[in-house]
Simulated scan of single mutants.
Amino acid sequence: MSAAAETSAGMRQSSFDLWWVPRAIALGLLAFVIFGPLTNLVLWTVAEKWYFPHALPLEYGLDYWGRVFSSRGNAMESLGNSVFVASMTVIVSLALAVPSGYALARLKLPVRGLILLAFLIPQAFPNLPVYVNIARLFYQIGLNGTIAGVVLVHVTHGLVYAVWIATAAFSAVDTELEQAARSVGAGAMRAFRDITLPLAAPGLLASAIFVFLESLDEFTGSYFVGAPDVNMLPLLLYTAGAGGNYQVASITALLLLIPSIGFMLVVERFLKSDVLSKVGH
């Protein structure tokens, strides 16, 4: 090989290697944006003493974990209420979403698009004025400050995910499978129970997880309808953060973050592109 060819090949190789510099910088910045706040959060959960201008905590320990989970910390009560409310929200939302989603997926309704759009109405307006008026209404009928009232508020938001994903899940199931089951003598309910429902189960599971996470993280509705009688983790997080107790706030945020990450991995496993493609169709 001539010297000119070797020089040209060396320049191309050098140019190719230099492409990794901006890529590495971009990936590094992205990792910092994503993991920087999470690292700061984890550090606050074990920081006993940390103040400006120190970049790292001066003392580490788990004393604040003991305070959070003590009988006076309200964390266990708040965690129990949050999980119970989220579970009840999932049950009520799916009880409404499964028949609604099946009907919207199978029936040729002339206003099908408007019905799906109607479930987005709670998301179309600012939460604050909506929840203020709901709290006033619930106070008049005795639901303010009750678990049932908080569940009903959470269901209004959970139905958006539940109905849309359930509709997509049932739309992804081939109608010919139901027809084949009916042709060999299965009734409508048995064909739904034995054929359609198991095939739509992954999408319904993803729907349940979305509703659970939405309920678990809901603050505004829990505050206006539940506080101060119903303690919830988002309310505990807000109280600790507003009071400058960053250790308690970070521990509470971590309790909310862990199930969110775990459940999102499950959603990614079960909610496939063929289901997503049916959303809105």
Rank of each mutant, 00 (worst) to 15 (best):
S8Q: 04
S207G: 07
L204E: 08
Y51K: 13
F224S: 14
V21L: 00
Y102H: 12
F210G: 12
L271W: 05
R12Y: 00
A253S: 11
Y161C: 00
S2F: 01
A249V: 02
K278N: 11
T175Y: 11
S14V: 00
A148H: 14
T239L: 13
A103H: 11
A47Q: 03
D217Y: 11
A169D: 06
L116E: 08
F52G: 08
N74L: 10
S2I: 00
S15E: 03
L254W: 01
T45R: 00
N81Y: 13
L257F: 10
I115L: 13
E6V: 02
P126F: 00
V184I: 08
V46R: 02
K272Q: 11
Y64L: 03
S87M: 07
V160C: 13
K108L: 04
A118Q: 13
N74T: 14
V151A: 10
M232V: 13
I209W: 07
P198H: 07
E48H: 10
V275S: 06
A31M: 01
W65G: 13
S260P: 08
Y64H: 12
E178G: 13
A181G: 04
H157C: 09
G280H: 01
L233K: 06
L94K: 08
L62A: 14
S70K: 05
A135F: 05
S215V: 03
V132I: 15
A9R: 12
F170K: 05
V21I: 12
E77T: 07
P259N: 13
W65C: 02
A253E: 09
Y131D: 01
M11K: 15
G145W: 05
F52Y: 07
V46T: 02
M11N: 12
I251W: 03
R190D: 14
W65S: 05
L213R: 11
Q140M: 08
A97S: 15
P228R: 09
I134C: 08
G80V: 01
Y246Q: 14
I134V: 14
R23W: 02
R112S: 13
L43V: 05
W65M: 01
L237Q: 12
